[in-house]
């Protein structure tokens, strides 16, 4: 089971990793900076496989990719939010941090709840209740299938995106 870290609406990338903690490319430094001021207990208690559940506009603000990296480096299984800011969502997909859009879960869930997350099906179960979220689609799905944007480009350049663009 995964522990839920519940956050509110409008969690910015400044909250996820403040500007004083992201002047680095060192992954372990980023890991330690994750939510360091907004949720100081996160770093102390998080275990690989845990899940972040947030409200609207998660990851708004700065484009810093250090934010999804910091979350990923903590082994978080998925971020489930009512909605995501555009750049954060794209960054998370690019680096292979699972992101699920789900409106209903945030109101129901409480901090510290146990949750079961099925990333592939975008499904979260908490206290016996199942929530169906929305997994990435289109280009984002192709990137996820390749593991990361770098993986996708290394495998076949832009071919996978070209396929999607011809469908749309």
């Amino acid at each position: 089971m995964a522990r839920v870290f519940k956050l509110g609406d409008g969690v910015s990338t400044d909250a996820i990793i403040p500007g004083r903690y992201n002047v680095t490319t060192d992954r372990d430094t980023l890991r330690r900076g994750c939510l360091v001021e907004a949720r100081p207990d996160f770093g102390q208690n998080v275990q690989p496989g845990d899940v972040i559940v947030a409200g609207r506009n998660f990851g708004c603000g700065s484009s810093r990719e250090h934010a999804p990296l910091a979350i990923k480096e903590n082994g978080v299984a998925a971020v489930v939010a009512a909605s995501f800011a555009r750049i954060f969502y794209r960054n998370a997909v690019n680096i292979g941090l699972p992101v699920i859009r789900c409106d209903a879960l945030h109101d129901f869930v409480e901090d510290g709840d146990d949750a079961e997350v099925d990333v592939a099906r975008a499904r979260v179960t908490v206290r016996g209740r199942e929530f169906q979220g929305e997994a990435p689609s289109g280009v984002a799905l192709r990137i996820i299938e390749a593991g990361s944007l770098i993986g996708m480009i290394r495998e076949g350049g832009w071919a996978a995106v070209e396929e999607v663009s011809h469908v749309s």
Binding site: S63, R64, E65, P68, I87, R90, N91, N94, I95, S148, L149, I150, I153
Partner: peptide, 10 residues
């Protein structure tokens, strides 16, 4: 528009 570092690296 703004993108993350990985997109810019690509």
């Amino acid at each position: 528009t703004g993108l993350g570092s990985t997109d810019i690296g690509v």
